[in-house]
Computed example of a mutant assay.
Amino acid sequence: MKISETDILLVPGYGKTLPGHWILRWQDKMDTARVVKQKELSRPSKKDWLDTLVSEVDAARRPVVLVGHSLGCILIAHGSHALKDKVKGAYLVAPSDWDREGLAEEFDGGDFKPIPKDPLPFTAHLVASRNDPYCEYERAEAFSKAWGTTFQDAGEAGHINLESGHGPWPEGMMSFAYFMKRLG
């Protein structure tokens, strides 16, 4: 599937996405990409965030490919069955483990628990880091298996964000291009 034939919805996670983050760079590089803007970035509400995502998907004029980061991955898993008619695929990067003791409470996002374990109703790929502070590698592998995604080991890449040195993240762009080709 060609990027120009899809609406790419970039679904960031908790907190403000800072300039230079790969999500914003991808939005600048792909004409059909746009960031899903949530109202409360530091007080996430599953219902509000899901309503926004569903609205963005409904507004799309072409088939949709979702790109989630961190809590954005978990949001996509929660909403997958409501989105399945227009979504052709999801590229999931560094999911955060909101079921982990204390994480959701620390970031005021308790209503994202429990994380769904049902297979996603569309093609998906999950990229995980071996030293992500918000999700153990084995837990990310378990998400991938439960959701029925292909899985990519990103090595020791932290949370795959600015803090871990992933502004441009060219390896991610190449991996995403391969994912898009698989959607055929």
Rank of each mutant, 00 (worst) to 15 (best):
C135W: 10
A77D: 02
E136W: 06
L183K: 12
Q38E: 01
E40R: 15
Y91S: 07
T52C: 10
G15T: 04
N161F: 14
H21D: 06
K37C: 11
L162P: 11
C135E: 05
M1G: 13
P121Y: 12
D118W: 02
A142T: 13
F151P: 05
R25V: 15
G102R: 03
V67F: 00
G79R: 01
G102D: 08
P19A: 15
L66S: 08
S80E: 04
L10N: 04
R25E: 14
R43F: 07
S55E: 10
L162H: 09
K181V: 13
H78M: 10
D97Y: 15
M30E: 12
I115W: 04
P116I: 12
I160L: 00
A140N: 02
G20M: 05
E171W: 01
S96E: 11
Y137K: 05
C73F: 11
L50C: 09
T32P: 08
D48I: 07
V127K: 00
K37G: 04
P116F: 12
A157C: 06
S70W: 02
W26Y: 08
A157R: 01
A94D: 01
P95C: 07
G167R: 02
H69P: 04
A146Q: 11
Y91T: 09
W169I: 01
L9F: 10
D118S: 15
H69A: 03
P95V: 05
G79A: 15
S55I: 00
E5W: 04
S144I: 03
A124M: 02
W147F: 09
S164L: 09
V54C: 11
A90C: 14
I3Q: 00
C73H: 06
L66W: 13
A60C: 03
L18I: 12
F151W: 15
Q27G: 09
E163G: 10
R25F: 07
D118I: 10
D108K: 08
D97G: 14
F122H: 04
P95H: 06
E56T: 02
A82L: 15
G68P: 02
I74D: 08
R100Y: 12
V35Q: 10
V57I: 08
K113D: 01
S45K: 07
G13D: 05
I76Y: 01
T17K: 02
